[in-house]
Nucleic acid binder design. Structure first.
Lengths: 230, 230
DNA sequence: GCACTCCGTTGATATAAATCAACAGAATAA
DNA sequence: TTATTCTGTTGATTTATATCAACGGAGTGC
């Protein structure tokens, strides 16, 4: 895994609201200590509980972020897609990862030394502001997920997952996904079997169409109604 | 509700890790635009969906923060106690409140103009860093709550609530609380009736003791075991 | 005084969802 | 090739939890 192969920070800078705030020197600092790594599907980028030394920026592919409990259950709390770094709250507190990140498909990530990142954050107000904005958006997303998981029944939760995948993750309507049924279940807080059953009722009602890894939402308004009604 | 009655910012500064980072001028700016308000139990400090013009700092009492869904259900996502401001993610995004804050008991809050607050955040790196640290801690707390609510059964969730109240909110073991059974249920994602039933089994097993508004944890290790086992 | 609402409590019943079990197909390893 | 593991799927059964209903007590307003 060589350093600085493929992309460089100046390319990413154009694509990311947050990295736009970096000046030339800061970008050089990041570029200088940056390590690019390719992950294959299923490979762990970082593991819950492990120390966090680096900030991770996803350059290509898709990573899922999930919490694992003692009881072997997982809950997917979000995704990281290009070009975005992963907000690691532990980096600012106990220097531990509080969730795991795993590549869903072939994924490239840049690792940036946490101290370098922290240093920029401490000195560049615009960057810090953009960072806080991003963290705020993520917090709001967590609120929505928490409300969905605790207040809605399974059809509403699956509707939420499908709408979120189409509108926030893939930004497409027939979308091709690398997520398994288990992943969909982990997003919606249910078992794989239950997720499959709900998807089947949606298919029977012509709300969606699935074909191997492709999912198409045929009736978005109805899915939104199901989401609202819980 | 007059301005600047009772406390002043210099007192709060000593009690809050975050406000310690403010210099004299910044503190004066905050002090100058600050409005102090007393809320009675049950009164709304701010309401989900409403525009957020001010940052809220709790000076005395206790406020509960909760998300309300369309289906009339609530989930308490945290508390604010003295001296702490409430992190309002909407202030950095869509200028709307994404959860409601309600006084649990007689509560005093200082409202600080959001622009003044934002201005300090943009210019004081140490303050911004402390802010990010606080937000990170809150995010980690949300992860734990999400895992508790989605992966544990009712006894584990109630154990989590009791331990959290004793160890994080009240910092006392027999503690006197102003929270209703409904509030405990809203913290643990279940109905009031279910919460009461679990509390009863805990009482029957001599894990806790309750006397009107007082709750005492008699067997913390066992409660922790119940929490771990879900 | 009385009516009324809110909170805490308990029991009976209904139901959403997990668990258990089985199997087919695809992918992977030996 | 065969064996083996993982994913997707379906059905039968169990169970955790919500819902419904009822009641006593405390507080509040009239």
């Amino acid at each position: 895994m060589a350093n600085n192969n493929g992309s460089n920070c100046h390319l990413c800078m154009q694509k990311s609201d947050v990295f736009k705030r970096l000046n030339h020197d800061e970008l050089d600092a990041v570029n200088g200590c940056r390590v690019t790594i390719k992950y294959r599907p299923g490979e762990i980028i970082f593991k819950q509980g492990s120390p966090c030394h680096d900030f991770v920026c996803i350059v290509s592919g898709l990573a899922k972020l999930y919490i694992e409990s003692e009881c072997e259950k997982r809950i997917i709390i979000g995704f990281a897609k290009p070009v975005d770094y992963i907000f690691v709250p532990g980096a600012f507190t106990d220097k531990r990862h509080h969730f795991s990140a795993v590549a869903c498909e072939e994924t490239t990530a840049c690792l940036v030394n946490a101290e370098v990142f922290q240093n920029i954050l401490d000195n560049n107000n615009a960057f810090a502001s953009a960072f806080i904005k991003k963290v705020s958006e993520q917090a709001i997303g967590m609120f929505e997920q928490l409300a969905s998981l605790t207040h809605k029944q399974m059809p509403g939760r699956i509707a939420d997952v499908l709408l979120s995948l189409s509108q926030k993750i893939y930004n497409a309507n027939p979308f091709v996904t690398s997520l398994s049924r288990q992943d969909l279940a982990d997003m919606s807080g249910m078992t794989k079997e239950s997720a499959i059953r709900i998807l089947k009722t949606f298919k029977d009602d012509n709300l969606i169409r699935t074909d191997s890894d492709t999912i198409e939402l045929l009736n978005v308004p109805m899915l939104e109604t199901i989401s609202r009604n819980g």
